[in-house]
Design a protein around this nucleic acid. Sequence first.
DNA 1: TCGCTGGCTATAGCGCCACAAAGCCAGTTG
DNA 2: CAACTGGCTTTGTGGCGCTATAGCCAGCGA
Lengths: 155, 155
Amino acid sequence: MAMTLDGPLADRDRWRATRCSIGKAMDAIGNRTAVLLLREAFYGTTRFHDFATRVGVTEASAAARLRELVELGVFEKRPYQEPGQRTRHEYALTEMGRDLLPIVLALMQWGDRHLQGDGPPLRVVDTTGSPVRVQVANDRGDDLSAEDLVVQVNR
Amino acid sequence: MAMTLDGPLADRDRWRATRCSIGKAMDAIGNRTAVLLLREAFYGTTRFHDFATRVGVTEASAAARLRELVELGVFEKRPYQEPGQRTRHEYALTEMGRDLLPIVLALMQWGDRHLQGDGPPLRVVDTTGSPVRVQVANDRGDDLSAEDLVVQVNR
DNA sequence: TCGCTGGCTATAGCGCCACAAAGCCAGTTG
DNA sequence: CAACTGGCTTTGTGGCGCTATAGCCAGCGA
């Protein structure tokens, strides 16, 4: 049912998850608008106005969230110029941002399975048409659930 | 870089992600306290007071978030009785709740990699000691990134 | 030089979610 | 029967993030 807590972690009353990466990640990107901006970035959106309208928030909101994400290092702002147009900026995912794909797809997968009465609106497949899913796996690629996992103190 | 949008999705100005599972998932559980309650549940916590103190929020906050998660079907409240004690209730993850493991671990993995200056505080391994990670994979277990993915309309 | 457009920024108001402190109720122990 | 404990609930306050509306600025085209 639950994970196994190893070594000094076993006595659950003796420690608190103060440097927890899950909490830090939620502080950084745990916000509906931020996550939907990431969805749009993975769908290929790069321009400010497109982000705002496709996510369905005001430009004020999109600007505030994008600014935070640039500051954090998830997006980078890059100048570009279309012929006959002035210089503009586009928002491109950094490596840090691209590493968010498992989070975004895991949310989608869970929502598809448990929150959609009429089934998933979209399907994600690979380039051969094979369905894609997010899994918790070890080196051998075995699919694991909580009771297969052990948590240890690092170093 | 980005996913491929297939068929009617290709013209990005022609559709809006209105029934988006990512947005619905964020509405349901996209909240710091809710996610940390889930972390504790995966670590084995079942009792109200333990949830509140281990997450580090007030009992008022823990009670409100737990009530929402029970209503949603992520937790179920079960009566139990310790010898010499009155009947109490514990919070246990349902299947819907256990399906949130990839989201929680994906957040942890990303936070470990990008938000922890001194490296990850905890390690997650399987029962043989092999490191565990969250991956986006197809049927064959290939690890995929955004440019390998195709999004299609379902049905 | 004037107006248009894209990309923001500013202001005011509202709701959600956190906090702290206090209160309440059921049942068990003394 | 009174006191204690666990598990909440209530009340009041504050911040953050959303909305709507309005304004600003840079540069291109006419």
